[in-house]
Amino acid sequence: MNAILHKDFLFCVSGDEARSTLLDVRAGLEKGAIAPYLGPGLVALAASEASVPASPEAVAAALNTKAPAPSRIRTNMWGVAQYIEQRRHRNTLKAWMAEIFAAEPRPLALHRWLATLSLPLIVDSWYDGAMRAALKESGRQDFISVQGITRAGEVRDIWSRVYRADDTPAGDASVPQADTVLYEPHGSARPAGNFLVADSDYVEVLTEIDIQTPIPDSVKERRGNLGFVFLGCRFHDQMLRTYARQIIKRSKGPYYAVMDGVALSKNERRFLAENGITLIDMPLSDAAAVLAGEDDAPGLAPGVPVKTS
Rank of each mutant, 00 (worst) to 15 (best):
I280E: 11
L135W: 08
S118I: 09
L45M: 01
A103E: 05
Q147M: 07
S188R: 06
G232P: 09
I247Q: 00
I209F: 09
A289Y: 03
L10D: 04
S55C: 08
P302V: 09
E30K: 02
E268K: 11
R72G: 07
A50F: 10
T168M: 13
I247M: 06
G41I: 01
M1G: 07
Y37F: 15
A58T: 00
R241C: 04
N267T: 13
L93F: 02
S200P: 03
D16K: 15
D24W: 02
F195T: 00
I209Y: 01
V304C: 13
S118A: 15
L42P: 07
H89N: 11
Q147S: 07
G224S: 14
R161C: 02
G187H: 10
R112V: 06
F143D: 07
E154Q: 15
S188V: 13
S188N: 09
E268H: 07
P305V: 09
E57A: 15
Q82E: 14
G253P: 07
E154S: 14
S55Y: 09
Y255K: 14
A287W: 00
I144P: 01
A263S: 14
F235K: 04
A170W: 05
N64H: 08
L121G: 01
K7H: 05
I100G: 00
E57N: 11
I280P: 05
P302W: 10
P216H: 02
Q212M: 13
V43Y: 05
A130I: 06
L121I: 04
G41F: 09
L272Q: 01
L110M: 11
S48N: 12
D217R: 14
F101L: 12
S145Q: 09
A133D: 13
L182W: 04
F11C: 06
L108I: 02
D24K: 11
P214C: 11
W113Q: 04
G253Y: 12
G41P: 04
K7Y: 05
G41N: 03
L22H: 01
V175H: 01
V306P: 01
A130R: 05
S285R: 15
G253S: 14
A50K: 07
K66Q: 14
E208D: 05
S20G: 10
V162D: 00
